[in-house]
Design a protein around this nucleic acid. Structure first.
Lengths: 196, 196
DNA sequence: GTAATTACCTATAGGGTATAGGCTGACTTG
DNA sequence: CAAGTCAGCCTATACCCTATAGGTAATTAC
């Protein structure tokens, strides 16, 4: 038979597609092997085990998300940058729900070592620099807007907004406007130099 | 042997304890049966299937969370009520991580039919009434603070805050103060009657 | 006291993870 | 170019988990 010529990247990419199509929990070595036209044990030549496969999806998603966020905030500042950052997260979560789901777990070693997570917080930090916040305030603010974005998207995904009337998109705009005014009028902590 | 005299409630309660101890993904019919000193198929007399068991945990957690939130905001208003609401969520998520995890998924039928979810949003709405917000603004605000609380707690749980210096608790206070000032100075939408 | 119900059991099928070990084709190497 | 090496897939197997079918003992109902 023609050898499918797999690789760790190909297996992980296919698993990520499966996650998007059928949910992260549907990512199983058997299912991925089936999709790739290969027997399950063959995957072990490329992937250590199921946990490593899932961790690979997380690392992939983190990198992809960093990329789309980077272009979304490029050349923007203030409210536009914040909106770009948030919208990049939101379109990623809707277009790649399985990959997004892979981010809602404690990341494994390869995902944290990939540095993609740090890249993402650096990008968020860059947006906050535009608001003139000090270093400590920026980590508080990073955590706040990260929490709000992440929380909104998981609540939207699990259907928490399905039983109230305004569409989620309206609340999304309201929330981001609120975060913007919050950052613009951030309570400066006395003697704190904003830059650096 | 002495019959363990199980019931759906007992099985779900034990499964919830297992979730707290070993994570929600560790909730398995075999493991629960082992803990209860019973063979796996015996559980099917009380629970339809694994999905129903997990859904039962979600319904249980939703009810418990509503209860602790209710007492946390009783007799308080404004910032104190908001803080009570949020802290109730946070202590619940740290004391019962597995139950908390069960809330981060699309809820099954029995969980939604239990009405606990609606009770929880009603309680949140009551807190927002104290800020004098209109009905539409209250659903936006409910979604915003729900998103922030939920997002913060999942990011804290998965370790996203482990690599920056201020302890999460400090950011928690900052975030809640920010939400309070946000609600206090909420941009009223022109001709909107605040009450009812 | 007998019958029905209940709550557990064993047995079994099917799918998932993971390891061990075999086969083949391609690439290196003298 | 022939022989060895190795990568990449395979089969076979063990074990765990879900789920169903059907059996048994004890309690309850009448």
């Amino acid at each position: 038979m023609t050898s499918p010529h797999l690789s760790a990247e190909a297996v992980i990419a296919d698993a990520a597609d499966l996650a998007d199509a059928s949910g992260f929990d549907a990512v199983t070595l058997s299912a991925v092997a089936r999709r790739l036209g290969v027997r399950t044990p063959s995957l072990y030549s490329h992937i250590r085990d199921l946990a490593a496969l899932r961790d690979g999806i997380t690392a992939l998603a983190l990198g992809e998300l960093s990329d789309v966020v980077a272009v979304a905030i490029a050349g923007r500042s203030g409210k536009l940058a914040l909106r770009g950052l948030a919208d990049a997260h939101r379109t990623y979560s809707t277009r790649s729900p399985g990959r997004w789901q892979s981010l809602q777990r404690r990341a494994g070693p390869t995902a944290v070592e990939s540095g993609a997570a740090r890249r993402l917080v650096t990008l968020t930090d860059a947006v906050l620099l535009g608001y003139g916040l000090s270093a400590v305030d920026r980590v508080h603010a990073t955590r706040l807007i990260g929490s709000t974005i992440n929380g909104f998207l998981t609540l939207e995904r699990v259907g928490s907004f399905d039983h109230s009337t305004p569409a989620p998109g309206a609340s999304w705009t309201v929330a981001l406007d609120a975060l913007d005014t919050l950052l613009a009028s951030w309570p400066r902590t006395s003697h704190d130099e904003p830059p650096q």
